[in-house]
Design a protein around this nucleic acid. Sequence first.
DNA 1: TTTATTAATCTACAGTTGTAAACTAAAGAT
DNA 2: ATCTTTAGTTTACAACTGTAGATTAATAAA
Lengths: 146, 146
Amino acid sequence: MITHEQTMTTSEWEVMRIIWTLNEATSKQIIHFMRLKKNWAPSTVKTLITRLQKKGYLTDNGAPRDRLYLPIISEQEAMHHALAHTIGAMCAMYVGQSLAEVLPDITLSRDDITQLQSVLQKKLTQAPTTVACDCLPKERITHHVH
Amino acid sequence: MITHEQTMTTSEWEVMRIIWTLNEATSKQIIHFMRLKKNWAPSTVKTLITRLQKKGYLTDNGAPRDRLYLPIISEQEAMHHALAHTIGAMCAMYVGQSLAEVLPDITLSRDDITQLQSVLQKKLTQAPTTVACDCLPKERITHHVH
DNA sequence: TTTATTAATCTACAGTTGTAAACTAAAGAT
DNA sequence: ATCTTTAGTTTACAACTGTAGATTAATAAA
Protein backbone atom coordinates (compact mmCIF):
# COMPACT_ATOMS: atom_id res chain seq x y z
CA MET A 1 0.00 0.00 0.00
CA ILE A 2 1.43 3.35 -1.03
CA THR A 3 1.09 5.85 1.78
CA HIS A 4 -0.40 9.14 0.62
CA GLU A 5 -0.53 11.93 3.12
CA GLN A 6 1.39 11.88 6.35
CA THR A 7 -1.04 12.73 9.12
CA MET A 8 -0.56 13.00 12.85
CA THR A 9 -2.41 10.41 14.86
CA THR A 10 -4.29 11.40 18.00
CA SER A 11 -1.61 9.97 20.25
CA GLU A 12 1.08 11.81 18.38
CA TRP A 13 -1.01 14.95 18.65
CA GLU A 14 -1.08 14.64 22.43
CA VAL A 15 2.69 14.46 22.51
CA MET A 16 2.99 17.49 20.26
CA ARG A 17 0.73 19.53 22.52
CA ILE A 18 3.19 19.07 25.36
CA ILE A 19 6.12 20.13 23.24
CA TRP A 20 4.30 23.03 21.64
CA THR A 21 3.38 24.34 25.04
CA LEU A 22 6.87 24.01 26.45
CA ASN A 23 8.34 25.31 23.17
CA GLU A 24 10.99 22.62 23.44
CA ALA A 25 11.24 19.68 25.78
CA THR A 26 13.37 16.78 26.91
CA SER A 27 11.99 13.28 26.70
CA LYS A 28 11.92 13.32 30.46
CA GLN A 29 9.50 16.23 30.51
CA ILE A 30 7.32 14.73 27.85
CA ILE A 31 7.29 11.40 29.62
CA HIS A 32 6.36 13.14 32.83
CA PHE A 33 3.35 14.89 31.36
CA MET A 34 2.18 11.95 29.33
CA ARG A 35 2.24 9.80 32.41
CA LEU A 36 -0.07 12.31 34.06
CA LYS A 37 -2.30 12.66 31.01
CA LYS A 38 -2.47 9.07 29.80
CA ASN A 39 -0.43 7.03 32.18
CA TRP A 40 1.82 5.92 29.37
CA ALA A 41 4.99 3.95 29.93
CA PRO A 42 8.19 5.83 29.08
CA SER A 43 8.89 3.63 26.06
CA THR A 44 5.53 4.48 24.63
CA VAL A 45 6.41 8.15 24.67
CA LYS A 46 9.81 7.42 23.15
CA THR A 47 8.22 5.53 20.30
CA LEU A 48 5.85 8.38 19.60
CA ILE A 49 8.70 10.88 19.61
CA THR A 50 10.60 8.79 17.09
CA ARG A 51 7.60 8.48 14.85
CA LEU A 52 6.94 12.21 14.99
CA GLN A 53 10.52 12.80 13.91
CA LYS A 54 10.20 10.33 11.04
CA LYS A 55 7.03 12.08 9.96
CA GLY A 56 8.78 15.42 10.02
CA TYR A 57 6.85 17.12 12.81
CA LEU A 58 9.71 17.18 15.29
CA THR A 59 13.48 17.75 15.36
CA ASP A 60 15.97 17.77 18.16
CA ASN A 61 19.11 19.64 19.11
CA GLY A 62 21.32 16.62 18.43
CA ALA A 63 22.58 16.20 21.98
CA PRO A 64 23.56 12.59 22.67
CA ARG A 65 21.63 12.74 25.90
CA ASP A 66 19.11 15.04 27.61
CA ARG A 67 18.30 15.96 24.07
CA LEU A 68 15.82 18.75 23.39
CA TYR A 69 12.97 18.08 21.02
CA LEU A 70 11.56 20.95 19.00
CA PRO A 71 8.41 21.25 16.91
CA ILE A 72 8.89 21.83 13.20
CA ILE A 73 5.32 22.94 12.64
CA SER A 74 3.60 25.39 14.96
CA GLU A 75 0.53 24.45 16.93
CA GLN A 76 -1.54 27.03 15.10
CA GLU A 77 -0.47 25.71 11.73
CA ALA A 78 -1.21 22.16 12.76
CA MET A 79 -4.61 23.15 14.10
CA HIS A 80 -5.40 25.03 10.94
CA HIS A 81 -4.53 21.98 8.85
CA ALA A 82 -6.45 19.59 11.05
CA LEU A 83 -9.56 21.73 11.04
CA ALA A 84 -9.42 22.38 7.30
CA HIS A 85 -8.89 18.67 6.76
CA THR A 86 -11.88 17.63 8.85
CA ILE A 87 -14.17 20.21 7.30
CA GLY A 88 -12.86 19.47 3.83
CA ALA A 89 -14.02 15.88 4.09
CA MET A 90 -17.56 16.92 4.88
CA CYS A 91 -20.60 17.63 2.77
CA ALA A 92 -20.35 21.32 1.91
CA MET A 93 -24.07 21.71 2.27
CA TYR A 94 -24.04 20.94 5.98
CA VAL A 95 -20.80 22.55 7.08
CA GLY A 96 -22.42 25.80 8.13
CA GLN A 97 -25.08 24.06 10.14
CA SER A 98 -22.52 21.80 11.78
CA LEU A 99 -20.43 24.73 12.84
CA ALA A 100 -23.49 26.43 14.26
CA GLU A 101 -24.30 23.29 16.24
CA VAL A 102 -20.82 22.89 17.61
CA LEU A 103 -20.13 26.51 18.48
CA PRO A 104 -22.31 26.66 21.59
CA ASP A 105 -20.16 24.00 23.24
CA ILE A 106 -16.90 25.77 22.52
CA THR A 107 -15.26 28.20 24.86
CA LEU A 108 -14.41 31.38 23.02
CA SER A 109 -13.09 34.62 24.37
CA ARG A 110 -14.84 37.90 23.75
CA ASP A 111 -12.09 38.78 21.28
CA ASP A 112 -12.43 35.44 19.48
CA ILE A 113 -16.10 36.09 19.04
CA THR A 114 -15.77 39.59 17.68
CA GLN A 115 -13.01 38.33 15.40
CA LEU A 116 -15.25 35.57 14.08
CA GLN A 117 -18.13 37.94 13.66
CA SER A 118 -16.05 40.27 11.57
CA VAL A 119 -14.83 37.43 9.39
CA LEU A 120 -18.40 36.34 8.87
CA GLN A 121 -19.52 39.85 8.12
CA LYS A 122 -16.90 40.09 5.38
CA LYS A 123 -18.08 36.84 3.87
CA LEU A 124 -21.69 37.89 3.86
CA THR A 125 -21.48 40.10 0.78
CA GLN A 126 -20.07 37.35 -1.42
CA ALA A 127 -22.10 34.56 0.17
CA PRO A 128 -24.31 32.46 -2.11
CA THR A 129 -27.94 31.81 -1.33
CA THR A 130 -27.45 28.08 -1.07
CA VAL A 131 -24.60 25.61 -0.96
CA ALA A 132 -25.03 22.39 -2.87
CA CYS A 133 -24.26 18.92 -1.58
CA ASP A 134 -20.96 17.69 -2.97
CA CYS A 135 -21.07 14.10 -1.79
CA LEU A 136 -21.56 12.47 -5.15
CA PRO A 137 -18.90 12.78 -7.84
CA LYS A 138 -20.02 14.48 -11.01
CA GLU A 139 -21.43 11.96 -13.40
CA ARG A 140 -19.83 12.82 -16.72
CA ILE A 141 -22.80 12.49 -19.01
CA THR A 142 -22.03 10.60 -22.17
CA HIS A 143 -24.19 11.32 -25.16
CA HIS A 144 -25.14 8.04 -26.71
CA VAL A 145 -25.28 8.63 -30.43
CA HIS A 146 -27.32 6.11 -32.37
CA MET B 1 -4.55 -3.72 22.79
CA ILE B 2 -8.01 -2.78 23.97
CA THR B 3 -9.79 -0.66 21.37
CA HIS B 4 -11.41 2.40 22.85
CA GLU B 5 -13.67 4.47 20.66
CA GLN B 6 -15.00 3.28 17.33
CA THR B 7 -14.34 5.99 14.80
CA MET B 8 -15.04 6.16 11.09
CA THR B 9 -11.95 6.24 8.93
CA THR B 10 -11.71 8.65 6.01
CA SER B 11 -12.35 5.89 3.48
CA GLU B 12 -15.38 4.72 5.38
CA TRP B 13 -16.56 8.29 5.55
CA GLU B 14 -16.45 8.56 1.76
CA VAL B 15 -18.65 5.50 1.47
CA MET B 16 -21.09 6.88 3.99
CA ARG B 17 -21.41 10.14 2.09
CA ILE B 18 -22.70 8.22 -0.91
CA ILE B 19 -25.25 6.36 1.15
CA TRP B 20 -26.30 9.40 3.13
CA THR B 21 -26.93 11.28 -0.06
CA LEU B 22 -28.92 8.47 -1.67
CA ASN B 23 -30.68 7.78 1.64
CA GLU B 24 -30.23 4.10 0.96
CA ALA B 25 -28.21 2.33 -1.68
CA THR B 26 -27.31 -0.99 -3.21
CA SER B 27 -23.70 -2.08 -3.29
CA LYS B 28 -23.87 -1.62 -7.01
CA GLN B 29 -24.64 2.07 -6.65
CA ILE B 30 -21.99 2.58 -4.04
CA ILE B 31 -19.44 0.73 -6.14
CA HIS B 32 -20.38 2.87 -9.11
CA PHE B 33 -19.82 6.15 -7.32
CA MET B 34 -16.68 5.04 -5.53
CA ARG B 35 -15.20 4.01 -8.81
CA LEU B 36 -15.80 7.53 -10.08
CA LYS B 37 -14.57 9.16 -6.90
CA LYS B 38 -11.58 7.00 -6.04
CA ASN B 39 -11.35 4.40 -8.73
CA TRP B 40 -11.73 1.66 -6.17
CA ALA B 41 -12.20 -1.96 -7.09
CA PRO B 42 -15.61 -3.41 -6.22
CA SER B 43 -14.16 -5.63 -3.50
CA THR B 44 -12.68 -2.63 -1.80
CA VAL B 45 -16.09 -1.07 -1.51
CA LYS B 46 -17.53 -4.33 -0.24
CA THR B 47 -14.93 -4.52 2.46
CA LEU B 48 -15.69 -1.00 3.58
CA ILE B 49 -19.41 -1.71 3.68
CA THR B 50 -18.82 -4.76 5.85
CA ARG B 51 -16.62 -2.80 8.21
CA LEU B 52 -19.15 0.00 8.48
CA GLN B 53 -21.77 -2.57 9.44
CA LYS B 54 -19.48 -4.12 12.05
CA LYS B 55 -18.85 -0.67 13.47
CA GLY B 56 -22.56 0.01 13.65
CA TYR B 57 -22.84 2.84 11.17
CA LEU B 58 -24.77 0.91 8.56
CA THR B 59 -27.56 -1.70 8.36
CA ASP B 60 -29.26 -3.36 5.45
CA ASN B 61 -32.70 -4.58 4.54
CA GLY B 62 -31.68 -8.22 4.81
CA ALA B 63 -32.32 -9.10 1.17
CA PRO B 64 -30.13 -12.01 0.07
CA ARG B 65 -29.25 -10.09 -3.04
CA ASP B 66 -29.60 -6.53 -4.37
CA ARG B 67 -29.59 -5.66 -0.73
CA LEU B 68 -30.19 -2.10 0.35
CA TYR B 69 -27.78 -0.50 2.80
CA LEU B 70 -29.05 2.14 5.17
CA PRO B 71 -27.23 4.58 7.43
CA ILE B 72 -27.80 4.18 11.15
CA ILE B 73 -26.43 7.60 12.01
CA SER B 74 -27.40 10.70 10.05
CA GLU B 75 -24.87 12.73 8.15
CA GLN B 76 -25.49 15.74 10.34
CA GLU B 77 -24.96 13.74 13.50
CA ALA B 78 -21.78 12.25 12.16
CA MET B 79 -20.51 15.66 11.09
CA HIS B 80 -21.32 17.11 14.47
CA HIS B 81 -19.39 14.33 16.18
CA ALA B 82 -16.43 14.59 13.85
CA LEU B 83 -16.16 18.33 14.24
CA ALA B 84 -16.56 18.22 18.01
CA HIS B 85 -13.96 15.49 18.14
CA THR B 86 -11.41 17.39 16.11
CA ILE B 87 -11.92 20.59 18.03
CA GLY B 88 -11.98 18.75 21.33
CA ALA B 89 -8.46 17.48 20.75
CA MET B 90 -7.11 20.97 20.26
CA CYS B 91 -5.67 23.56 22.57
CA ALA B 92 -8.66 25.54 23.80
CA MET B 93 -6.67 28.74 23.68
CA TYR B 94 -6.28 28.65 19.91
CA VAL B 95 -9.61 27.21 18.81
CA GLY B 96 -11.20 30.57 18.20
CA GLN B 97 -8.28 31.79 16.16
CA SER B 98 -8.20 28.57 14.16
CA LEU B 99 -11.84 28.86 13.30
CA ALA B 100 -11.33 32.43 12.22
CA GLU B 101 -8.47 31.34 9.98
CA VAL B 102 -10.40 28.52 8.40
CA LEU B 103 -13.69 30.30 7.88
CA PRO B 104 -12.61 32.43 4.91
CA ASP B 105 -11.96 29.28 2.88
CA ILE B 106 -15.32 27.73 3.63
CA THR B 107 -18.36 28.21 1.47
CA LEU B 108 -21.29 29.31 3.58
CA SER B 109 -24.71 30.40 2.51
CA ARG B 110 -26.12 33.73 3.56
CA ASP B 111 -28.42 31.86 5.96
CA ASP B 112 -25.53 29.90 7.41
CA ILE B 113 -23.72 33.13 8.09
CA THR B 114 -26.57 34.87 9.81
CA GLN B 115 -27.19 31.71 11.79
CA LEU B 116 -23.56 31.61 12.88
CA GLN B 117 -23.61 35.28 13.73
CA SER B 118 -26.62 34.87 15.94
CA VAL B 119 -25.05 31.94 17.76
CA LEU B 120 -21.95 34.01 18.34
CA GLN B 121 -23.96 36.97 19.52
CA LYS B 122 -25.63 34.79 22.13
CA LYS B 123 -22.28 33.55 23.35
CA LEU B 124 -20.87 37.03 23.65
CA THR B 125 -22.56 37.89 26.93
CA GLN B 126 -21.18 34.87 28.75
CA ALA B 127 -17.84 34.92 27.01
CA PRO B 128 -14.70 35.11 29.17
CA THR B 129 -11.98 37.62 28.50
CA THR B 130 -9.38 34.97 27.83
CA VAL B 131 -9.24 31.22 27.31
CA ALA B 132 -6.34 29.38 28.91
CA CYS B 133 -4.18 26.78 27.22
CA ASP B 134 -5.19 23.29 28.31
CA CYS B 135 -2.38 21.30 26.75
CA LEU B 136 -0.62 20.33 29.95
CA PRO B 137 -2.38 18.18 32.53
CA LYS B 138 -2.86 19.78 35.91
CA GLU B 139 0.10 19.12 38.10
CA ARG B 140 -1.39 18.12 41.43
CA ILE B 141 0.79 20.09 43.80
CA THR B 142 1.90 18.09 46.79
CA HIS B 143 2.73 20.06 49.88
CA HIS B 144 5.93 18.74 51.27
CA VAL B 145 5.67 19.02 55.02
CA HIS B 146 8.97 19.07 56.87
C1' DT C 1 37.62 3.34 37.29
C1' DT C 2 33.99 0.36 38.26
C1' DT C 3 29.14 0.74 39.05
C1' DA C 4 24.63 2.45 39.08
C1' DT C 5 21.45 5.29 36.64
C1' DT C 6 19.11 7.01 33.07
C1' DA C 7 18.36 8.24 28.22
C1' DA C 8 18.16 6.59 23.58
C1' DT C 9 17.64 2.76 20.17
C1' DC C 10 15.84 -1.68 18.74
C1' DT C 11 12.53 -5.18 18.75
C1' DA C 12 7.79 -6.86 19.45
C1' DC C 13 3.25 -7.70 18.74
C1' DA C 14 -1.75 -7.39 18.25
C1' DG C 15 -5.35 -4.56 16.18
C1' DT C 16 -6.70 -1.21 12.32
C1' DT C 17 -6.79 0.42 7.69
C1' DG C 18 -6.17 0.53 2.62
C1' DT C 19 -6.61 -2.28 -1.00
C1' DA C 20 -8.25 -6.25 -3.36
C1' DA C 21 -8.38 -11.28 -5.25
C1' DA C 22 -10.69 -15.69 -4.67
C1' DC C 23 -14.65 -18.17 -3.68
C1' DT C 24 -19.60 -19.09 -3.07
C1' DA C 25 -24.37 -18.35 -3.63
C1' DA C 26 -28.41 -16.21 -5.84
C1' DA C 27 -30.90 -14.91 -9.97
C1' DG C 28 -31.42 -14.40 -14.79
C1' DA C 29 -30.73 -16.41 -19.47
C1' DT C 30 -30.88 -20.43 -22.63
C1' DA D 1 -32.14 -27.89 -15.80
C1' DT D 2 -27.78 -25.88 -16.84
C1' DC D 3 -25.00 -21.98 -17.69
C1' DT D 4 -23.77 -17.29 -16.99
C1' DT D 5 -23.74 -13.31 -14.55
C1' DT D 6 -23.76 -10.86 -10.50
C1' DA D 7 -23.84 -9.92 -5.56
C1' DG D 8 -22.19 -11.29 -1.18
C1' DT D 9 -18.59 -13.74 1.90
C1' DT D 10 -13.78 -15.18 2.92
C1' DT D 11 -9.20 -14.65 2.82
C1' DA D 12 -4.94 -11.81 2.14
C1' DC D 13 -1.46 -8.86 3.05
C1' DA D 14 1.44 -4.84 3.83
C1' DA D 15 1.60 -0.39 6.26
C1' DC D 16 0.16 2.13 10.28
C1' DT D 17 -1.03 2.56 15.39
C1' DG D 18 -1.17 1.76 20.26
C1' DT D 19 1.47 0.04 23.59
C1' DA D 20 5.69 -1.34 25.64
C1' DG D 21 9.83 -4.56 26.98
C1' DA D 22 14.80 -5.42 26.05
C1' DT D 23 19.22 -3.67 24.88
C1' DT D 24 22.80 -0.38 24.47
C1' DA D 25 25.13 3.80 25.28
C1' DA D 26 26.11 8.03 28.06
C1' DT D 27 26.62 10.10 32.62
C1' DA D 28 26.79 10.53 37.36
C1' DA D 29 28.04 8.33 41.67
C1' DA D 30 31.00 5.62 44.55
